[in-house]
Design a protein around this nucleic acid. Sequence first.
DNA 1: GCCCGCGAGTTTACGTCGTAAACGGCTGGG
DNA 2: CCCAGCCGTTTACGACGTAAACTCGCGGGC
Lengths: 270, 270
Amino acid sequence: MATAADPDASGDGADEPDPDSPEGRGGAAFVLPAGPPDTGRTPLDRRRILGAAIRFIDTHGLSALTMRRLGASLGVEAMALYRYVPGRDQLLDGVVETVIDELYGDPDVHLEAAHGWQDYLQRLAHGVRRIALAHPEVFPLVATRPPAAPWVRPPLRSLRWVESFLTAMTSCGFSEDSAVAAYRAYSSFLLGHLLLEVSQKGVPINAQDAGESPAPTADLSEYPTVVRLQELLSMDESAEEFEEALENLLGRLEHVRREGRSPAEPESFT
Amino acid sequence: MATAADPDASGDGADEPDPDSPEGRGGAAFVLPAGPPDTGRTPLDRRRILGAAIRFIDTHGLSALTMRRLGASLGVEAMALYRYVPGRDQLLDGVVETVIDELYGDPDVHLEAAHGWQDYLQRLAHGVRRIALAHPEVFPLVATRPPAAPWVRPPLRSLRWVESFLTAMTSCGFSEDSAVAAYRAYSSFLLGHLLLEVSQKGVPINAQDAGESPAPTADLSEYPTVVRLQELLSMDESAEEFEEALENLLGRLEHVRREGRSPAEPESFT
DNA sequence: GCCCGCGAGTTTACGTCGTAAACGGCTGGG
DNA sequence: CCCAGCCGTTTACGACGTAAACTCGCGGGC
């Protein structure tokens, strides 16, 4: 696999575009079940509200989402929302759930491991990454909201996906111990990478939000290494990083699967 | 390769307690510079405010932190805080910064890689983990707040630590490319693991917070695998997982270091 | 045709939030 | 003795989430 990009990479660089980025692809993981943008005299229901909320957060940022403003974006007073949603917190829970459920509409992600577990995990990971990149303002919510049940971890928030994951893995030769261990390793890998990636992308893309000053860039005189490596540090290699860590994880899991035990070997590299 | 790690790394037996958990240890990473609980006629300053804020979040949860309540916890009106802190957002930034700065007070974490880079990374990882476990309610903030500069990633929020990291790695034989790649891999590993761990721990430990219903545990009849593995899934193996993934990462980085290039090999398993 | 209940959306209202601005009182140097 | 400056308080405003009361239009019994 092609390794280091040359320093010619000015910003996005990359000969081929990131396959998961929203504009670089057909655009699954982007289809909300709601119909036209937000016009229409359809008489308001839960799905429409959730769709509008996601659109609103994507556009204006999470911190700008207000019951009043969300109502306004639907041509309705704030209190009307309360007929369909118990409160703001549950609305946000619904947003998270809806976003994760976009996985079902993604033709590249399968509920079953028809072509092996590595294919399954690859597709799932890229599907979740596509969602994270399509809704960068929503994704921190996915990571931050408390899970419904203690064992349901972000970012695979729905029990249905946990079920799918565990079934896929056990049906591919993982012991139950190993499947659970794989679930843990996989979800923490996904969460870490994607959260970092959107938090990195979210700042430059989205001008306003938390009212933070963009980057005063204080005196860096005390940090010569940071200064020297500034260009390297600010390169966006998210896609390659993601791919490589995913590959490594799959290798690690293959090792786990063959052992049939919970993972633990001091060395695993060549 | 057994990475030279001081804190009894290899033995991942469940019999001995988690070395990073707050009560299982001497308690570095727990020392705030503030003195007695909150009594005292000391005339209020920024450090005292930040300390009180951290204490407040640890006790009552992030969502309960209010300028008025924080003021009250210091025996002062809310507006008094504004003389020392520009606003709530900057207060939270200060909280994050203060929490990360606890690393400096941790005798087990070194700014320089005197005993090799693996020892350095081990100590740093455990130091950060100790902080995350000591302040589970603060840690999501560490991950979520926008970074000051795009290249400063959570959870190593301060330029000083980035500088330390890069210097340590390059001084141990990493090329600059590799050091930056290691920084990325390491921070995303840390963030993912710790965020998942505290979000998992935070729910059962802390009764109230976001007003979420604890866990109604809806009908699980559609998810037989989840039900069957429920016990396995709800086991807390955070410490072992952390250790194992860290070990794996170190192995991966050793590989990177020897190549002297940015990390990428299609396969790495046996 | 009349009425009436009822579901969908609105109005009003309350308490809390972050914070701007004016205010008060202590304190130490001329 | 006075007064300037610091430090904390008071007051006030607009926005927030949401409870409760209200309005309005429509479809089915009489």
